[in-house]
């Protein structure tokens, strides 16, 4: 177990800090039925991803097996076991987006970022994932960058979109 873990924001938190933050969440949900997914979601938002010690702790505290919790973490693409970039780019490959060129957008994105699905750029700015319908089929093809929706994306425009966020991330660092 590593003593320190890198958070999505690029900073580091110790395992002890992580554990404390998690305790509060677990205390809130522990006695409620169906607690697992909300706890995982909250933990994912807190840490940016679900480090292994966190998954194990959640399993223990909610009286579930590690294998079961791992199964849930692995099932939903929303959950990640590895640190993600500051911006999560999700390219929709739902039916509507797919027929309107979602796959080409994905290829362009992979090329522009130099990473594959599920990976993070070395500078920790971007992570790439695919989505299965964001409910915006009329705007297909769609990508989401964190909470922002970009509509009718053309493969050639992928670079412009990324530049926007790259600039933003530089601002963040300067702040």
């Amino acid at each position: 177990m590593p003593e320190t873990t890198t958070c999505a924001c690029g900073g580091t938190v110790t395992e002890e800090q992580m554990s404390k933050q998690l305790d509060a969440v677990l205390a809130e949900y522990k006695s409620k039925p169906g607690a697992l997914i909300p706890v995982l979601q909250t933990a994912q938002t807190m840490f940016g991803y679900l480090p292994d010690p966190v998954v194990r702790k959640i399993a223990r505290e909610l009286d579930k097996s590690y294998s079961e919790v791992a199964g849930v973490v692995g099932f939903y693409s929303f959950f990640s076991r590895y640190p993600r970039g500051a911006y999560l780019v999700r390219v929709c490959l739902g039916t509507a987006c797919y027929v309107r060129g979602g796959n080409e957008v994905l290829s362009a994105m992979k090329k522009a970022l130099g990473i594959d699905i599920g990976q993070t750029t070395p500078d920790r700015v971007f992570s790439l994932d695919i989505g299965r319908c964001f409910g915006a089929c009329g705007l297909a093809p769609v990508i989401m960058v964190n909470q922002d929706v970009h509509q009718r994306v053309k493969p050639a425009k992928v670079g412009d979109i990324l530049a926007l966020y790259r600039a933003k991330s530089k601002e963040e660092i300067h702040k």
Partner: peptide, 28 residues
Amino acid sequence: RVGALFPQARGFKTVIGPAFDSDLAGVT
């Protein structure tokens, strides 16, 4: 009520097994 095995991942990549990609010795 042991919980060593559970479906991991999804779709074609689904594996019925211990947590993530660990072996049986890695779980209870």
